[in-house]
Design a protein around this nucleic acid. Sequence first.
DNA 1: TATTGTTATACTCTATAACTATA
DNA 2: TATAGTTATAGAGTATAACAATA
Lengths: 165, 165
Amino acid sequence: MTAKSAPTPRNTPAEPTDKLLHQFVGYNMKRAYMQIQDDMSETLAPLGLRIGTFSALAVVMGSPGISQTQLSQMLNIKRSGVVVVVDELERASVLERAPVEGDRRAYSLVVTPAGKRLWQKAEKAVQAHEAALFSGLNAQEVLTLQDLLGRAARSAGRQRRENSS
Amino acid sequence: MTAKSAPTPRNTPAEPTDKLLHQFVGYNMKRAYMQIQDDMSETLAPLGLRIGTFSALAVVMGSPGISQTQLSQMLNIKRSGVVVVVDELERASVLERAPVEGDRRAYSLVVTPAGKRLWQKAEKAVQAHEAALFSGLNAQEVLTLQDLLGRAARSAGRQRRENSS
DNA sequence: TATTGTTATACTCTATAACTATA
DNA sequence: TATAGTTATAGAGTATAACAATA
């Protein structure tokens, strides 16, 4: 090496590396997810959504009438966490807690007309943003990534359930 | 179980779905990462490590003498966050803050002999655990996943830097 | 003036536990 | 007794901002 630029500690390699970390799938997954998460948040902010509220809206759109407990299972969070998310979406008139006939404890979550319009916008915005985000990958590679991520999650989940039983 | 078990709200689809979410790479990435993160934590706990301290140890192992500022850049966290991690590792006698000759502001981070033995164990433990975790994927598929995750992260990072400039 | 490490503080996301009203 | 939703509280992880020592 010739021109040492920054005042670096003496016996440090010229360029510090995280090579030892990159061998692990978990680390690469974290790095990729963190990048995407930040970008996703910026995409959703103008629509008044966060990742959590966007996800909840997506599930209620796909499963109208779902209960909060069911929603918590779909999102893999606790019921107490769902309350906050639904409160926020209801305050924004995106969805409503409708009474369930036959069970006065539960709510039936339904998306309002305004909420449906918001979803159309949000879905398109995220689709467009992911397309730009993964411009370095071709269509087939994105499909492969989707498949492998899905199978990795299921594989890991199965592993965890077996170990805890 | 066969028969409908839980008292479900009336007009709910028989099985709620998160199909609308699964179209997004970001969501699949989050699901997979969350699964792996939980498992990773359980693997590291018996060794007295967390994901954050494990990652820092890995970087200092690969770049002995690195400064805290450099470490913060490698880990993509702030310098203030590094202090906590290094404090914890130093308290456990895993690494040390050595003085840097020529710059009395900075520290040169070095792994102790005990720290090196711990790293050998931790590296093997995580390798073994990832192997079990991804037993649903063959070797080639894991390599492909690694490649795509790396490229996705770089692609997303580039995208973000361009937009913010 | 700029940089290294540090501290104090705050924010986000999520979990736990206790509570209520129903069932 | 058990379940749906709620509330209060706490923890992990990270960010921001101000500071002391040093460059």
